[in-house]
Design a protein around this nucleic acid. Structure first.
Lengths: 335, 335
DNA sequence: ACCAAAATAAATAACGTTGTCAAATTATCA
DNA sequence: TGATAATTTGACAACGTTATTTATTTTGGT
């Protein structure tokens, strides 16, 4: 590998001058800049990042630890957002995935510390509460899509209550008055908060208890979540006879569409359907295309990085705060 | 940050001894190991990776450059596989995503070079041919899910021909004799190779031209691919009247299911359905669950790393070779 | 043309490690 | 016990940079 000194020799200047040119420091004669750049090109020199990091205080590295996040399609966007923002800020993201078999956050954190990361982003697969050991206090840390059980980190989550509230209000304002909510497993935060928003919107429109129905489309058997949308939907559609259905996730909306079609009804005409996720290509592949609340994963990833970077400059006065990011309705044809 | 010398001082040994303990080099008295480990724990010392990298020749860093890959759910698995294998081999993956707006592979490669990566994995979103500049020759490089237009890199791709062949043979051996193939855009490699396999299997079973039908479910209008499965499926189902349909991707199989249901037929009973991808939760959410050829992304990611590492030791005699990885049928209930 | 001030360049220290080799200590055996 | 070999330790150079200080060159004003 060619070093800064070899470049200096070829360019006929001291190696410090080369360093100045490489780092775009001022105070080098244009003529010398020219010579150095020539030599760099000629030799194919590339700065050795590691060597530079030894001397500089700032490494420009941000650790991204994910609880399996980057394999789940819905939230890959978090990573992408973080990566884009990091790149814009001249930082490099180092990505680590937790091993689902034995998830050891601390080991990965250790790795980040050794690389002298300047901060850590921890991303979770779904909106949940996570417990962190004290080692996580070593660096500025921002949580994405989860909160800390001990509430001691800045975290960025989707505003599921707002999402539930907003989409319900949209349904109501379009005239739907008999709404079924096929919610996710009630143990998860998103399900709880969406339901809160759902009820709030109904309340504002003065709907009675008999005008809505809430059911659960997930069942947990020995720690595995299984999807029972098809049966639940069939039941709710025939017994409650809603004029609109709000579905906990786009994937389950597929099942819902089938059940609606089976009853000879048409989505978007006889019955409105709305959902949550905006899960990649699913909403668009359905017919009619599914109107769904997009979870702002990409933006959450971006915000995580910028919050992290500002954490480092400003004192962590505002720790333990939770940023709830608004969800947007992707308005298509299903209601 | 605490350094090796501070640890040495506390432990009452030379800093070289600490270095030996940290790197588990032999020849340190157990008693001193104990003292050093004590001091390390007491001070919370962590080796500075950058400093170590300056001195050592091996950085243990592998660059992973992806053409948007890590945002597409189907192939996130490549990244995961690569990451797992890299971790097992004691390497660290540095992940870079191409900016879809202005995809500049070379810039990311440059970044990898500066980090003194020992090798590069380039992953593509779908099986395609990609052109690389000469800068990619600087390091051992392995391509995943794509081949080089100039055929000068080792690459790892799914064996789409085998996949098409295998699944068709399965259909045939279950007695289906009138098969429609709803293929992807014929411009892409996967579509071409699967079709080849499809035809080969049909030929082996001696099927006539009138016993099968091939249609395209994607249309390209101003560089954007649009999905026309619904219309094509409706047409093929009524005009050709297949007893089985092989679908180009799981997502499109959703459309196909709808059309089949609309005709009053039942998947898996009146008509067999098979597909390609094993795209996350889709095959399981469909009813009946979809039998589909899984693309071996995870394994491709793993193989990429191990091939890369062996490239470095053995001379690149076997360059320009293409590893085609067999696809497995995920046998469910749709045929 | 000369001097001071400003601009530029060079020399050298420093960063936190690992590699080399010589020195010190301990173990082995006659 | 003494000599020798084996083990363990430490001093110091080296890695490729950036930071700091010092030296040199250029510029501007008289």
């Amino acid at each position: 590998m060619v070093t800064i000194k070899q470049v200096a020799e070829v360019a006929g200047v001291s190696f410090k001058t080369v360093s100045r040119v490489v780092n775009k420091e001022p105070g080098v004669k244009p003529q010398n800049i020219e010579k150095v750049e020539q030599a760099i090109k000629q030799l194919g020199y590339r700065p050795n990042r590691a060597a530079s990091l030894v001397r500089k205080k700032q490494t420009g590295i941000i650790g991204f630890i994910s609880d399996e996040i980057s394999t789940t399609p819905a939230s890959v966007a978090i990573l992408k957002g973080a990566q884009d923002m990091a790149w814009e800020q001249g930082k490099t993201l180092m990505v680590f995935n937790l091993d689902p078999k034995k998830p050891n956050k601390d080991k990965l954190y250790e790795e980040c510390l050794q690389h002298r990361a300047e901060g850590i982003i921890y991303g979770a697969m779904y909106h949940q509460a996570v417990t962190f050991s004290n080692i996580f206090k070593s660096l500025p840390t921002v949580l994405v899509n989860c909160i800390s059980t001990s509430n001691d980190f800045l975290s960025i989550v989707p505003d599921d209550e707002q999402a539930g509230y907003y989409v319900t209000k949209q349904l109501l304002s379009k005239g739907y008055r008999r709404i079924a909510f096929l919610n996710l497993n009630p143990d998860i935060i998103a399900a709880q908060q969406r339901q809160k928003g759902f009820l709030k919107a109904l309340d504002e429109f003065g709907l009675a208890k008999s005008d809505y129905h809430i059911a659960t489309i997930e069942k947990v058997v020995n720690n595995k979540t299984i999807n029972i949308t098809r049966d639940v939907a069939a039941d709710v559609l025939t017994s409650f006879k809603p004029d609109a259905v709000l579905c906990g996730k786009d994937l389950a909306a597929i099942n819902l569409y089938f059940e609606i079609e089976r009853l000879g009804l048409t989505v978007g005409k006889d019955i409105g359907v709305a959902s949550f996720d905006n899960w990649h290509d699913i909403p668009e592949i359905l017919d009619p295309q599914l109107s769904t609340m997009a979870l702002p994963y990409y933006e959450m990833g971006r915000l995580a990085i910028s919050k992290l970077l500002s954490l480092k400059t400003s004192p962590p006065e505002s720790d333990q705060s939770v940023y709830k990011m608004a969800c947007l309705l992707c308005d298509r044809q299903s209601f």
